[in-house]
Design a protein around this nucleic acid. Sequence first.
DNA 1: CACTCCCGCCAATTA
DNA 2: TAATTGGCGGGAGTG
Length: 873
Amino acid sequence: ENIFDRSRMAPKTPIKNEPIDLSKQKGCTPERNPITPVKIIDRPQPDPWTPTANLKMLVSAASPDMRDREKKKELFRPIENSEQSDTPDSLQYDIVDDTTVDEFEKQRPSRKQKSLGLLCQKFLARYPNYPLSTEKTTISLDEVASVLGVERRRIYDIVNVLESLHLVSRVAKNQYCWHGRHNLSQTLKMLQEAGELQYGELMTFQHKEQDLEYKFGERKKETIPHSQDRQLLDFSEPDCSSASANSRKDKSLRIMSQKFVMLFLVSKTKIVTLDIAAKILIEETQDTVDHSKFKTKVRRLYDIANVLTSLGLIKKVHVTEERGRKPAFKWIGPVEFSGKTDELRGRSPTSDSLPERAACAQYQICAAGKQRFTRHASFNDAQPCEGTRRKASSEPNSPHQERQDEYCSKMINLAAVCRQKIEEDTRNSSITSPFSLLPVPGDSDFCVNPLPQAVFPVVQAEVPSLSLPTGISSQGPHPSTPAASKTENGKTTLVPNQPFLCFPSSSFFMLCGGLQENNLSETLPTAGDKGNRSAKVEAVIPPAVCQKRSSHKCTSPSSPADDEEPAAKKQTMEQSDLPLSLVVPKKPLESPKAESTPGIGCPSAVHLETYSLDLAHPAAPEATSKESLDCQEQEKRSQNTDPDEPPPGNEHIPKENANQPFQPQYLYVQPTTGLSSFNFLFSANQAPGAISLASNQLPSLSVPCVMVPSAALASFPLVCSPSFASPLSPVPDGSFSAAGSMNFSMSSLASTTPVFISTTAMVTPKVSPAPSVDLQQPAHPALHLSPVLTRSCSAVKLDSPVCVGHPVTLLKLQQPSSTPLTPKSIRPAHHEAFFKTPGSLGDPVAWKKNEGNQTRNASSVQRRLEISGTNPD
DNA sequence: CACTCCCGCCAATTA
DNA sequence: TAATTGGCGGGAGTG
């Protein structure tokens, strides 16, 4: 008994041995055990003990007497089951103990209770599927092991598999960072692509390289071939640099897990038998296939399968073959992300089951940057998470830095993604896409590099969202969602709606509005150059955004985006994440009216919802302007987009979404983190027409902007585009009076100013007035943008809040006013209001529901934010 | 008996 | 060198 106590007492480390020994020794005296066992039980919860120790003890005790097993079982079960609820369990335990020793004995938990799958579920239950971007959840192996009552070895099994899917990344010794499933779809997509390359032959498949091609652009296949290795490598070691090298070790479980997943993704049937998987994996390994190896492989596959099962990605099934029934696993996770562009366009409307996937596909790519950005970025690079494994990690030690890097990378990724989309959409046309990124000229490289790794994690998730728009957009139901759509259930990733992007990690997000317009793309360059890098960063905006409103036009690019609820959900979810603050609204869709009103008009918000900020878009698609805009847009669209979509169609569909006038999209930065760090980017180009606004007011901004983490940008100055200048001033039509306000002067700003952001500060001042918009305050927050906008926008206007008008909504920041920048301060407010929910909620589900209601959300949001309504003309 | 897969030794890596 | 990771396979639990 004493011993036990000790063990309990023992600090973290598992005393495993001791217990064991004891048990063994004791074996003789089973009888006593009963008592001890009880104690043990207690421990788990309260004490950090090692679970195993307990088990051992129990076992020893139990062995003698089986009689009580049953009781014990019960007891144990609770314990095991109880993931979190400590108390209860404890209580139970205690009770049990007292009551009976017997129980203990009974059985210890059955084997099932101790299974890796169950353990993994407990593990997963501890963390949110879609953590806010901002917060980083670190996982302490020791802590988790003690809490879950298992030995550390088991945790490694879980973590290694999760790491292979980028759900977690190793930060340091004993420390892992939880990313959640934000990037899951991207990761899966990458794996799918990689799998096709590697195993395509084996299994047939659907996708082809196209995707890759798109993604990679240049790279494509060439490299791909190796891909296997690479991929794996990449995955495993994202990190950077060099890392690659590394660890050979990395091999196993992690890689095996990825390969295993690849097999599912490549498989038509989505069913993979263990023996086949084992054979394939062994071959790859090169090893000769000896029987023992095979057995070992299978053992490992079971380990992996248990974790994947816990993740809900596969389920156990049996395949009856000629010979008989064989154990197999069926993939039940998302599958189709595949689609890349094609899909997007083509199917955009519907997001597949997994919206995420779709999204992913689009984004994925880092490649996007075709030229500029990362060219290479194939996912390989990208994949690596920030996490970096040991090796890599070592390099960057400081967490902070890492984060920054992450941001950067995220940004980059976004940009890339956007770019890709754009490219895709237009491929040639430069323009068109709603968003455009900024091109970053040379920088890109720089950016690029970083991206890959870091970005992914966070970004990816987000990205998808963004992208979604396209695909999704069509769906339309919820406007916002689009992007998000991808996500499946609650997952959502970030932003659901297309309108913006969120970056998880960072705090900012983007919104994109309609962007469609073109501008972006081209523009970028301009800015870019100068701009700087920022430009690079560029993120681009997602075309998708447009969708909604733009839907009409937008469509193409994004297509539809759609917003769909998913997005909404996501948004919400995201919110939770928070980082983003904004979230956007989705709503637009709904109200058609909005259109008329263009946004603004509504000040009501309704539509506006949003956020709309509008920025947007460039184009103005917004409703109001819509018409004119539309034309323009359409034209553009047509140009850009291309064929894909028929504009019209999109419109319809989207329509709902579309209805709304515009959707603004923009990026947002999250406060929390401190905005300060971020910068915004706009696309330079935009301007042109886009912003210009259409005549109507709407014009909001087209801006495509991106926010970049300051760090990232750092080097850059901001970018503004040249253009801007004056222009804006005028607001467009009446829409917004606010506009006037809006006008920011960006020009001044614009010019180069670099970033800025300031949400608050900037804006406020300026605009203050903004009438409609602000609900609360002058809101202008939007303004902040202005600078950005300005430039590009010059044409554009911001709506009130933002600028121009139009309906856009902006968010206001809190304080806008005066204070200069304190974004942070601002944020908070926003956050709470806006985001809060999501964040607070945590539950995705809830949010989802909301999505449906988006409108409502929006409204609320608007209020908070203040959106500008636009006005009608 | 076959399927699962827990358990933990112990080597490889890291710190 | 100590600690952390994680490959590996014996062998037990299940059905």
